[in-house]
Amino acid sequence: MLVVLLTLWMWVGYLMGFVSLVVSQSTLHDAPSSTTPIDPELFAKAITHAKTMAITNDPNHRQHIQQHQQLLDQLQSGNIEALYTVAQSLNQRGAGDDRITSVQLWHALADGPAAHVLSAVALGFSYAEVDKELALKYFVQAAQGKGDGGPHQAAAFNAGRLFLELNDAASSLAYIRACANVHNQFPAYATPQLTQTCQEAYETLSLHIRQETTSPPGIEDAAEMFLYSSIDEFPEPNSKEFAMWARGMEYLEMYATLVREGNARGEISGNKKGQTYLLAAQQELEHMKSGYGKNMSELQHYLIDIILGRVQVLMTAMESEDGYEL
């Protein structure tokens, strides 16, 4: 799978700049501002910088002063949005110490009780080139939203990109699909441009997975990807078809447990159990495919055929009393 993931990474990579431009758009949709406790020393640095933000050549000087005083008043109370604004200003100055302070402020906001979404996004970008797993943590956090607030669409896309780079196709499909579908449940948190970008990225990833011949998915890869391989989110949780899929996977896990314990090889009782589990899994998945195939995506058809093909190979091997691992 590594070849296809790296290929798509090259295609998706140029989109990162576009996504970074839309990050600030969700500010309008954040939950009402609240306050949060913060380390006194870090808070003092924020106050010191905030006072310098009053210096301006703005012709609307009086309006600027009023806005600055409002910022200081909010900052004194530990207002989250005011702290975030100061962190942004510090980061934009470019000086080493200022950037460090900005990241510390974002950590205080994202890691604290507020779980501030935009601070998590900022941390994702801050770590994207130096610590991808840490960047992924914060993009995922922002993509999940907070409280009554909806998900951060750009963060979901960037999480999908990083999962792709870390060779996790299933999670990449999940988050890019989430980005593409934000508009369905949380329209206020979606933009048409980013929705289209995510839809195109999702379809491209799906196509590349289906067309990969050098290192196609194995049965475990196929099983992990299946539930995230329909942009229409088929099968829906708690549906009959989802239950069929879950039972099929449960039987395969039972077989895998036999293999891990060494009971599926060389023991007649183990072989019989293994055959029973494989046959049950095959029946569930074939029933799902025949009964609900019209609702499945092309990628899901491709993946379920991989699973059924491997199950058939295993069943044939079991009949000759020579079991194999999944």
Rank of each mutant, 00 (worst) to 15 (best):
V3M: 15
L5D: 12
W11V: 10
W11P: 07
Y14L: 04
L15A: 10
M16L: 01
L21A: 10
V22I: 12
S24T: 07
Q25E: 15
L28R: 04
L28P: 04
H29D: 10
A31R: 07
S33L: 12
S34K: 06
T35S: 01
P37M: 07
E41M: 04
L42N: 13
F43H: 13
A46Q: 08
M53Y: 02
D58Q: 04
D58M: 00
H61P: 00
I65S: 00
I65R: 02
Q66I: 00
H68V: 04
Q70H: 02
L71S: 02
D73F: 02
D73N: 07
L75Q: 12
Q76F: 08
G78F: 01
N79H: 02
N79F: 04
V86W: 00
Q92V: 15
A95I: 15
D97E: 15
I100T: 14
T101G: 12
T101H: 09
T101P: 14
S102D: 05
S102A: 15
S102M: 03
Q104T: 10
A108F: 14
G112E: 10
V117P: 03
L118C: 05
S119Q: 02
A120Q: 13
A120T: 05
S126I: 00
S126W: 01
Y127N: 06
E129G: 09
V130Q: 12
E133H: 09
L134Q: 09
F139R: 14
F139S: 12
Q141V: 00
D148C: 08
H152G: 05
E165H: 03
E165Y: 04
L166I: 13
L173W: 04
C179W: 00
C179R: 05
N181T: 13
A188F: 08
T191Y: 14
T191D: 14
L194C: 06
T197D: 10
Q199E: 13
Q199W: 07
A201G: 07
E203A: 09
T204C: 06
L207Q: 14
L207D: 14
T213D: 09
T213I: 09
T214Q: 06
G218A: 11
D221P: 06
A222N: 11
A223T: 06
E224F: 08
M225P: 05
M225R: 03
M225C: 09
F226V: 06
Y228V: 02
S229Y: 03
E233W: 01
P235E: 13
E236N: 07
K240Y: 05
E241T: 15
F242T: 01
F242A: 10
W245Q: 05
W245N: 08
R247K: 11
G248H: 01
G248C: 09
L252P: 02
Y255Q: 08
V259H: 04
V259F: 07
N263T: 14
K272T: 03
G274R: 09
Q275W: 01
Y277W: 12
Q282Y: 03
H287Y: 08
M288K: 01
K289N: 09
G291I: 03
N295Y: 10
N295F: 08
S297A: 11
L299V: 03
L299S: 07
Q300M: 13
H301A: 14
H301L: 07
L303R: 01
I304P: 04
I307F: 10
I307K: 11
V311Q: 12
Q312V: 13
D322W: 15
D322C: 11
D322Q: 15
D322N: 14
G323L: 08
G323W: 08
Y324L: 05
